[in-house]
Amino acid sequence: MSDNPFAAYNIEVPKKYAEEIKKFCKTGGGKVTYEFAPFNRQVDLWYFSFLFAVRKGLEPVAEKETSNITPATILSGDSYRIDHIQLAFLGTTKSIELLANHRKVFDYALSMANAGFPHVLQLLKDPDDRPLWTILDEIEMTQ
């Protein structure tokens, strides 16, 4: 496990999506099955929104009203996520100098996830299919 440069920060999500995000996570409460709550934890949905925004080339979105879902120390448990956030940042900015500014890199991750949320939640609410299959279809269709 690598050192976590983001350990001092919190993972925050836009307040307006906070309740909806919980609905699609198993830890969000209620006895919903994985078909309706395809993400285990809120951090997993957050990270998927980040990935989605990176892949689709979305513009980062800054949010003023946010809710703290968990400390970013949780990323140490999936350390590849730290590497991939740094790689996505470096690949986007092409600046080695900025890479050492951990706050800036983490803000990039937060604002990309903000940009991804409305699209990912739209997929999850697709009336024609259950959320798990919609997300898996989305991944399968990704080229």
Partner: peptide
């Protein structure tokens, strides 16, 4: 279903989605 759901959040998915930028960064 739990195993299938884990496919939405594993390292492979992360690699699929960041591949382009990761390759650029690795070249750098």
């Amino acid at each position: 279903l739990q195993q299938i759901a884990s496919l939405t959040s594993n390292e492979q998915v992360s690699k699929i989605y960041v591949a382009d930028f990761a390759n650029t960064a690795k070249n750098l």
